[in-house]
Amino acid sequence: MNHPLLGFLTAAGIVFFGVLGAAAYLVLAERKLAGYFQERYGPNRVGPFGLLQPLADLIKLVFKEEVVFPQSNRWLYLLAPGIIAVMALLPLAVIPFAPHFAVTDINVALLYVLAAASLGTYGVLLGGWASNNKYSLIGGLRTANQMISYEIAMALALVGVVLMAGSLSLKDIVAAQQHLWYLIPQFLGFVVFLVSMFAETNRAPFDLPEAEAELVAGYHTEYSSMKFAMFFVGEYIHMVVAAALMTALYLGGWYGPWKPGFHWFALKMALVLYLMIWVRWTYPRFRFDQLMRFGWKVLIPLALVNLGITGLVLLR
């Protein structure tokens, strides 16, 4: 019963299904909140307060017709949604949700997270290319540019945290925040990380890849049924992961004013997710050249300034 693999698999199962459930209800939360921001009710027909809406959505998506166009590149076309969903799920393996609960803890956890993020680009790029549709292709290319550009700012912001904690392991980073959350000494880095996370998750105001006014639906124009659902769920899993990362890196993880534990982690994650939804329904979309200019001429220099100040203070 006490085989080490068993505990590992149990933890992985708990995290996997927990996050899938969270992603499903995040969709509902987003629609509800969007409704409130726009002075309507949002979905409220299925179940009490619309609480069964994710189930209804799932049934609807499963029973849609599967469409594979003959001119698309079949293998890559089918592979792309899977890449998105898997690469969104991968970082969960190293996130410490509670003092003694994480699927695993490796000494290069942050690099692992960055690697998963950079491989996620392929899902969008290949999906856009394999669909053999110009709107999809443009959407895919925009995403590739956007994700690569903002990954640099993200990684540079993270270096500040790594410098302060002296470790790449997320567990050590959270443990180093027992007395002071990195939100305060790393405020500039936090802002850069937050903004680049919006870009990494392809959400408004950075949802250029799927700008429906210009590109129909961007890279997932040609996807239907479960394949579309994979893209869709992948985006929401990505949000959950981004919120978890932000909590672990800047908001002190499981620490709080009283007893430390998972409840603090969940509360902080919920706040970050609320912020992400709030921003999406408040701000208009960037233009592509504005997006690039902002990334390269504002965010990256800011991240470098943050890194320089952190280094100087730590050297002193």
């Binding site: 690697a115 993020a117 950079s118 491989l119 680009t121 392929y122 790029l125 290319w129 292709l137 895919g140 290319l141 590739a144 540019n145 690569i148 990954e151």
Partner: peptide, 12 residues
Amino acid sequence: GAVVVLFLVAIA
């Protein structure tokens, strides 16, 4: 994550 994406973008 970067080099092959660069190649793919250049090809496209």
